[in-house]
């Protein structure tokens, strides 16, 4: 019996909890991408690097706060820096929109041209990020690392396996729920949110109804700035900051968007979790898990891993391919053409 409990705790600790928090981080990023898809009608390749940039702003502000001895007790100081970083991110995004995207929007350029412009923005943004903080790994989470440590859990339950809940995981899941709730309330219940959906649905009719495209675009970028910054900071608190790993979030994020259905906000959330859990389930080594469950003679001697962790983004890719082959519209019928 305890063996079964141990096996379950093992999976909870190494697959479920990390999956939940990574999934939330992906979902927030995917929500931002899907909003841009729905309203501005292009795949924003700059998403990962913009996330990195807003995280860089947060890190710099956190260092500044720490320098003046301001911290947030057991919570990470970065939370204090977050609002300012969101504003910084918004200013950057609005500048990019003014100098890059607005022109193509007015020209009614093909989406693929705007995608290419966003690739240009991706490289400029990535350059700024690396120029400021370099390519190294930075850990900026302070305060208590754990809410429950593995040791405390073991002492509490008497099990051999521990279930550790990191502060960052707790924060990620709580903030993600609140933020997603806010975004959905905004889109479903407020006049501006409904106007955004209307604009996404039928641009010409939205104009005929008197909806101002400028306002819609501005509100979209505000939401994107909030989602992007929070997703980036939560990811950084969880795993530390490194420019490349943010850049590489692009693929799982796109995969999440497409799995859920392009332009569909609920789809982006579901997609984020599909990707994160697939990644963790397929790259987890089940050896220990089966040692708990199987009698001694049947116990495995290999790692029992489907895929090495170095190929974790191959999981996103394979899921992407499966979706494109079987149901290109995604789970929540998104836009295919």
């Amino acid at each position: 019996m305890t063996d079964i409990l141990n096996a379950i705790v093992l999976l909870l600790n190494f697959v479920f909890l990390p999956g939940l928090s990574y999934g939330s981080q992906l979902a927030l990023g995917a929500l931002a991408v899907t909003l841009v898809y729905a309203i501005l009608r292009f795949a924003n390749f700059a998403q990962g690097d913009t996330m990195a940039l807003s995280t860089v702003m947060t890190i710099l502000l956190t260092w500044l706060l720490q320098h003046f001895g301001i911290t947030l007790g057991f919570m990470p100081t970065a939370l204090l820096a977050l609002p300012l970083a969101i504003i910084g991110c918004l200013i950057y995004i609005m500048l990019v929109d003014t100098f890059v995207y607005r022109y193509y929007r007015r020209q009614k350029s093909k989406p693929i041209t705007i995608v290419m412009a966003s690739v240009g923005v991706m490289f400029v943004t990535g350059g700024i990020v690396r120029f400021v903080l370099g390519p190294d790994h930075h850990i900026f989470a302070d305060g208590e690392r754990f809410i429950i440590t593995a040791r405390e859990f073991k002492a509490m339950t008497g099990l051999a396996e521990g279930l550790a809940i990191k502060t960052s995981q707790f924060l990620t899941i709580t903030i993600a729920i609140l933020l997603v709730g806010f975004v959905f309330y905004f889109l479903q219940r407020t006049k501006t949110g409904k106007a955004m959906r209307a604009y996404a649905d039928n641009e010409d009719l939205a104009l005929l109804s008197g909806i101002e495209p400028h306002n819609i675009v501005r509100v979209t970028w505000i939401l994107v700035a909030i989602l992007t910054t929070i997703a980036g900071v939560l990811y950084g608190l969880d795993k530390g900051f490194m420019a490349t790993s943010y850049h590489q979030l692009l693929l799982p994020t796109f995969a999440a968007v497409i799995v859920g259905g392009i332009g569909s906000p609920p789809g982006a959330i579901i997609g984020g979790f599909v990707i994160s859990f697939s990644e963790l389930i397929l790259t987890y080594a089940y050896k220990k898990f089966f040692i708990y469950l199987l009698p001694e003679i049947l116990q495995p001697d290999s790692l029992l891993q489907f895929l090495g962790t170095e190929y974790k983004f191959a999981v996103s890719f394979v899921i992407l391919v499966i979706v494109l082959l079987l149901r290109p519209t995604g789970i929540f019928k998104g836009k295919v053409i």
């Binding site: 093909k110 890719f317 494109l324 295919v336």
Partner: peptide, 27 residues
């Protein structure tokens, strides 16, 4: 896999395959 669908699907798919190819030759 990706042609004949949205034009940006190809972009995303090529991004993915190139990351995977690089991961393979590195690992």
């Amino acid at each position: 896999i990706s042609l004949g669908l949205r034009t940006d699907y190809l972009a995303i798919a090529t991004l993915g395959i190139s990351e995977i190819i690089i991961a393979i030759i590195k690992n």
